[in-house]
Measured scan of single mutants.
Amino acid sequence: EPLWIRPDAPSRCTWQLGRPASESPHHHTAPAKSPKILPDILKKIGDTPMVRINKIGKKFGLKCELLAKCEFFNAGGSVKDRISLRMIEDAERDGTLKPGDTIIEPTSGNTGIGLALAAAVRGYRCIIVMPEKMSSEKVDVLRALGAEIVRTPTNARFDSPESHVGVAWRLKNEIPNSHILDQYRNASNPLAHYDTTADEILQQCDGKLDMLVASVGTGGTITGIARKLKEKCPGCRIIGVDPEGSILAEPEELNQTEQTTYEVEGIGYDFIPTVLDRTVVDKWFKSNDEEAFTFARMLIAQEGLLCGGSAGSTVAVAVKAAQELQEGQRCVVILPDSVRNYMTKFLSDRWMLQKGFLKEEDLTEKKPWWWHLRVQELGLSAPLTVLPTITCGHTIEILREKGFDQAPVVDEAGVILGMVTLGNMLSSLLAGKVQPSDQVGKVIYKQFKQIRLTDTLGRLSHILEMDHFALVVHEQIQYHSTGKSSQRQMVFGVVTAIDLLNFVAAQERDQK
């Protein structure tokens, strides 16, 4: 057995438009009618409502009807409940999964919650491996369901041993009777949507819809739904939504950006999952974080739909894509998950301010006199920076000697690579993860907040409520011999709460 199987392995699926269902090699399930009293909570997966979006479509000038398939009504709160249950049931049916076995899954959280929910009911041990950027709410729900959680670096490539995929496979090879159901490759993922989600949409719309818009992560949702719609409703256009920084969209030119990270969760990847059939997507749109969270908040405030950030991405694209539809036509959007997962993220004004998705003037509360002053007023001194090749031991000596707790790590040209902190280095040394002679590049981390000289002290204040420091950066445009230009970030300084307090105190003292 291989040590790991690539999540982007070539698909062996034989589905073709027009091929009889009787030739399918898979076990198919028909939607079942729910009894009045459910035998367990797993029976509350599927049969989610279709809700008309009344205000947002009109606000953006849509002539067509805009409908939302509300997947956050599933038992675990997301569309991923469907595939989690289906993968477990299919693994039980073919004898792969037996009582007492362990389920391991690399996930952005929602599939993990679905699997942990099913594992709690069915009696399996469950280990979820997820990147650090995923919300604390997801972690809390997983723990409450009895799952064990392993976190991995957000910026690790999918084929790196440190990625959530790599760590999951390492655990599988170490733990007896453990299984990775593997949402990236498992046919049960798109089949769950082909058999149930798509049929529900067709039934709820009486077979009449002209466009379907869905955000894409593993691709199982859009693949399964689109294949069924292509068979039953061939005139329906399928629109895929991919965040900026991901590479799922086609044509490839759409993916060209210097951005590699994004805040919206559960969609987009740096590889093409095996289950994603991009041939059934008629057109791709890219979405960005700001519009995703703005539209998610709009869905909550104006439509009462308590959905997550990827739902915002989907609707932001839908109001663009559906401009081509006329009166009497219908566009369906998939709202994948609930706001429950993001209470401390985009639902929080403070978080939105820190990330730059909300401006101070958007909030009406009274601010102190210094709130709208610029960061450049602080008069920061030149920063202490270190090269990635310097040793951890030497870096600790320098920081202690100069009285700093942290320093930016830059390359020879001064471009920011990340940050090192005294606390992080000492804990890594004590844990045996690094040696004093190791290069400081081994303990770089990139989960820090950046701020510009033109940003306000109010925004800085919000950042420092949650973080010990902020890195002050400025952009530099560099022209190359080819005539092309590129933008790079340079370090201007490091600012802490002490710097802000000293500035405010000094100004008030001078005024007296």
Rank of each mutant, 00 (worst) to 15 (best):
I239M: 15
G240D: 09
G240S: 07
P243A: 01
P243F: 05
P243W: 03
L248N: 03
P251N: 06
P251A: 08
N255G: 07
T257P: 04
T257H: 05
T257V: 10
T257A: 11
E258Y: 07
T260P: 03
T261S: 15
T261N: 08
E263L: 08
E263A: 12
I267E: 07
I267F: 01
I267S: 06
Y269D: 01
Y269K: 01
D270K: 06
D270I: 01
F271S: 01
I272L: 09
T274M: 08
T274D: 01
V275C: 06
L276R: 03
D277Y: 01
R278P: 03
T279W: 14
V280K: 09
V280P: 09
W284Y: 01
K286D: 01
E291H: 01
E291P: 01
E291W: 09
F293S: 04
F295A: 01
M298I: 12
L299T: 11
A301T: 08
A301L: 11
Q302L: 07
E303W: 04
L305D: 03
L305S: 01
L306V: 04
G308R: 01
G309R: 01
A311N: 06
G312V: 01
G312T: 07
S313K: 06
V315R: 05
K320W: 01
A321W: 03
Q323F: 12
E327S: 01
G328L: 01
R330V: 11
R330H: 13
R330G: 03
C331V: 03
V333F: 07
V333Q: 03
I334V: 12
I334R: 04
L335K: 01
P336Y: 06
D337H: 01
N341F: 01
N341R: 04
S348K: 14
S348R: 14
W351A: 01
W351H: 07
F357E: 04
E361N: 14
D362F: 13
D362Y: 14
D362M: 08
L363G: 10
K366V: 13
K367S: 08
P368C: 06
W369M: 15
L373M: 07
L373K: 07
L373H: 15
R374Y: 03
E377R: 04
L378F: 12
L384F: 10
T385Y: 05
V386T: 15
V386S: 08
G393C: 13
G393H: 15
E397T: 15
E397A: 12
I398M: 14
I398A: 11
R400C: 13
E401F: 11
F404M: 11
F404G: 01
D405V: 01
D405A: 12
Q406G: 14
Q406N: 06
Q406F: 05
A407Q: 08
P408C: 06
V409D: 01
V410L: 11
V410H: 11
D411G: 08
E412Y: 09
A413K: 15
G414I: 10
V415E: 12
L417C: 15
G418N: 07
V420H: 01
L422Q: 03
L422M: 15
M425I: 14
M425G: 07
S428Q: 15
S428A: 11
A431F: 01
A431D: 12
G432C: 06
G432S: 08
G432I: 12
K433A: 10
K433E: 10
V434Y: 15
P436L: 11
S437D: 01
Q439L: 09
Q439W: 14
V440G: 09
V443G: 14
I444Q: 09
I444S: 13
Q447F: 08
F448N: 15
F448R: 07
Q450I: 14
L453V: 11
L453Y: 06
L453D: 01
T454G: 07
L457F: 09
L460M: 10
H462K: 14
I463N: 04
L464W: 08
M466W: 14
F469N: 15
V472F: 11
V472E: 11
V473G: 11
E475S: 01
Q476P: 13
Y479F: 11
H480N: 09
S481H: 14
S481V: 14
G483V: 11
K484F: 14
K484Y: 12
R488V: 14
Q489Y: 10
Q489A: 10
V491Y: 08
F492N: 15
V494F: 10
L500M: 11
A505D: 09
A506C: 09
A506F: 13
Q507A: 14
E508M: 01
R509C: 11
D510F: 13
D510L: 09
Q511P: 01
K512W: 04
